[in-house]
Write a protein that binds this DNA or RNA. Structure first.
Ligand SMILES: [Zn+2]
Ligand SMILES: [Zn+2]
Ligand SMILES: [Zn+2]
Ligand SMILES: [Zn+2]
Lengths: 480, 480
DNA sequence: TAATCAGGTCACGAGGTCAG
DNA sequence: CTGACCTCGTGACCTGATTA
């Protein structure tokens, strides 16, 4: 999926610090977050619109927007993303598309519903924009924007559950105007979160329910706390957030519980680790909290319990399939195919190949079924899941400690601090431990050979290319 | 790569404010742009020729030329240039060289297209190209565009689109054609490589995926438009430009050469999402040299164990190598020069390289792939892409997807801001002001277009394309 | 093993400086 | 004013850790 940088609109390089961003905004946030004081005030009354071209013009506004879209040092997570996350993204896209389509026609129809959630997914969607407004071509930004973060979806769902849509609706994007003004707090304004997220299109199967788990189904993992990270408002820095709050209030009810909690409660959180904790505590009320650290997992489960079961059944794959179907006309039933695919997927691993596919082969995707809430483990399906990140440390003493220390070490004192404090926290959650270990090394096997072939990896991935150097290495440096 | 100042012809110090310029012209523009009114009118009716010697004689004409070659406060870009950009530059050089050689003979072939840049090294030209040529919004600016260019080469093969030539940097030249003609394109010529490159099929592993799929290879579904992403020319926005340009018809061939593209399109590009490719200038500062290497990294391997076989191989690096080879003596043509450069380059860096060369070590280079916009339609095709990022490096495919759309969006605001101030200033020179204004408009326009894009979105990589075709298996990989 | 991302590295260019 | 030089933020790419 393509995502656009929620801050500047450039194509996103990935999900960084809680939001889809480009490399530049990622680096900027990383550099700036720890040294906010160094940023000079906006000369334009804080109203600068941030886009690709002018993103370097006003640091204050760029940072503001980063926060606005939910970036947080504490919100990050490592590792590969779950398919759930991806699915959400897809769904969003669809919705957006649908909305867009619809809107063109019906603009008026739903206008209200969609709101951007200020909070919630704030980042995402809200920010992005909204699709609907514009005629197709016109639109300010693209789809991506709409895509939301995966998180959003989740969030949304949960929130609205039924509700409305997510997203986007309108917001225009940034560029243009608006958006960003934080002052105005678009967020607030837009506030509608609604999204229907889940059912953007109606899925055949899904429709009713479960497929996309209603908020309730959402992975347990989602914790309110998690959100915090994501959303700027919560962020301390965002002082203003308070301002926002009013809206937030409204939002809250919207949101289903977790979110609401977050939103409401959290006006801001401090960066410190405390965030996490605090949050946790807050948000969750005691009940959840078990986990500490991982914010994510943990309790989430708690929340979600029921659904999950069923939910599990409905695996991600399932959802995907449904989604796909919707997309594709051709395909008929899903089910059958799916199975096959799945088998493959799992197996495949490697190969991907796509070729084979000839017909409908399907690739299977493997997904871990959503876990029941209970589980703890958490998995991170959640988009939001911050998993490990040790930061929380919580758990694991051992590893965590290391990791945490290491990683974090640098930066920000803030975080670090948190950790320290947090450490104490650890107690609580045991779960983490498991995670850690894995790190085994991996690797190295082969290299030499090279051959492995994975052939292609899918290429997709390939970020890196190997090249043989036959001879002259090339110098790519410009200058020289 | 050496570049000459597009304004005065002196060796360029780098890419400043959207064009390769010397330190003097950089500083001049920086000082003058904000204070245009202060510049006195030309005493020579605005016809002064700007060169190294007389550049300080007429500020009005110097500034005019700066604007003409695409300089803009908003056109500047920060940070390191992508490898794609660099590659693109190399390719262009080759072509140029080739062209130069060839032209004498072949002029007739594509006469119109090629223009030589008066200034110097045409190469860049593209950049230079003078704006005049283009209708306002046309310029390609963004990185992506450049990337495309790079890609173009690849594409070129297959397609033919050509673009108009850009132009020469200098004003006067404008017409000439130069370019790069891709026709000549050494690369192509060399064909072997070319083919391979282009023809994905040919590659062993990759086969199916073309690195860059030649147009021909593209899935039926692919629409021309889709390609846009890859090549600037292809890009919708570009298209327009083509229209604009007389040459456009011929465009096809133009495309082939990256250069041409550049020249034409790019007057300057903004940093937008992709990168741009610039050419390097030569300045040498002591510092530079060293690094290059990075590129080479070792590790990267991890990911890519196998070998090149895979798509990976075909990475930017791959292309570069290919290019180099062509250049190299062995290959024939241009080579000689190249080698030198390369040697130098490499040497700096690391060292290691040199020796190794012999065999093949593999270097891995990471590059963010330019994206191409895919068509939406693609959707159909596409399976769903779940990948998060865009980057796909690997194959070209990735590129395809978004670029288009995204790319263009950009800007405005920057300009806007700048423009705002500036515009007001205008009084003095009307002409200048006009120029400035025009640009701004252009930008805007472009953006608008760009945004739409969605169509393209699809992103798919080649892989995906396949997949889609087959049916829909889903690809859960990130995209690269 | 593959995919992702926090962080780090350092190529680059905008700006500032100041002798000429 | 000019432009060689310096400083410093930016962002493309790399590295290693983490998760699926
Ligand atoms: Zn950004
Ligand atoms: Zn500002
Ligand atoms: Zn000059
Ligand atoms: Zn004059």
């Amino acid at each position: 999926m393509n995502q656009t940088c929620k801050v500047c609109g450039e194509p996103a390089a990935g999900f960084h610090f809680g939001a889809f961003t480009c490399e530049g905004c990622k680096s900027f946030f990383g550099r700036s977050y720890n040294n906010i004081p160094s940023i000079s005030d906006c000369k334009n009354n804080g109203e600068c619109v941030i886009n690709k071209k002018n993103r370097t013009a006003c640091k204050a506004c760029r940072l503001k927007k980063c926060l606005f879209v939910g970036m947080s040092k504490s919100g990050s997570r490592y590792g590969r993303r779950s398919n759930w996350f991806k699915i959400h993204c897809l769904i969003q896209e669809q919705r957006q598309a649908a909305d867009a389509a619809a809107q063109g026609q019906h603009n008026h129809l739903k206008p209200p519903n969609h709101m951007v959630s200020p909070l919630g997914p704030p980042g995402h969607l809200g920010l992005l924009g909204h699709p609907g407004m514009y005629p197709p071509g016109l639109y300010p930004r693209t789809k991506e924007e709409f895509l939301m973060l995966g998180l959003d979806d989740y969030k949304v769902h949960s929130n609205s559950a039924t509700s409305p849509s997510i997203s986007s609706p309108d917001s225009h994007n940034s560029d243009s105007s608006i958006d960003m003004n934080m002052r105005n707090n678009p967020l607030l304004k837009n506030s509608n979160l609604n999204k229907d997220l889940f059912l953007p299109l109606s899925f055949p199967g899904i429709g009713s329910f479960p497929v996309m788990p209603p908020p309730t189904f959402l992975p347990p993992t989602m914790q309110p706390s998690q959100f915090f990270g994501y959303h700027p408002f919560y962020h301390p820095s965002m002082i203003k957030s308070s301002e926002l709050s009013p809206t937030s209030s409204s939002s809250t009810h919207i949101l289903s519980s977790p979110l609401s909690n977050n939103s409401t409660n959290i006006s801001r959180f401090t960066p410190n680790h405390s965030e996490e904790k605090e949050i946790d505590s807050d948000r969750e009320s005691p009940s959840f909290n078990n986990n500490n650290n991982n914010i994510t997992n943990k309790h989430n489960n708690n929340h979600i319990p029921n659904g999950m079961k069923s939910a599990e059944e409905f695996t991600k794959r399932f959802y995907l399939d449904a989604v796909l179907k919707t997309q594709q006309p051709d395909n008929g039933v899903d089910g059958s195919t799916r199975n096959d695919k799945e088998a493959e997927l799992t197996s495949d691993g490697c190969d991907d190949d796509e070729e084979e596919e000839e017909e409908e082969e399907e690739l299977v995707v493997q997904m871990t079924p959503p876990r029941s809430p209970v589980d703890t483990k958490a998995d991170q399906d959640n988009p939001i899941d911050l998993s490990m990140k040790i930061r929380s440390n919580s758990t694991m003493s051992s590893k965590s400690s290391e990791l945490g220390s290491v990683k974090q070490t640098t930066d920000e004192s803030d975080d670090e601090k948190h950790s320290d404090n947090e450490e104490t926290d650890d107690h609580t959650t045991t779960t983490l431990t498991t995670m850690i270990q894995k790190r085994s090394h991996v690797d190295h096997n082969v290299d030499g050979n090279g051959d492995e072939v994975k052939q292609f990896e899918s290429t997709n991935d390939i970020k890196r290319m190997k090249i043989q150097i036959t001879t002259t290495p090339l110098d790519l440096t410009t200058r020289v």
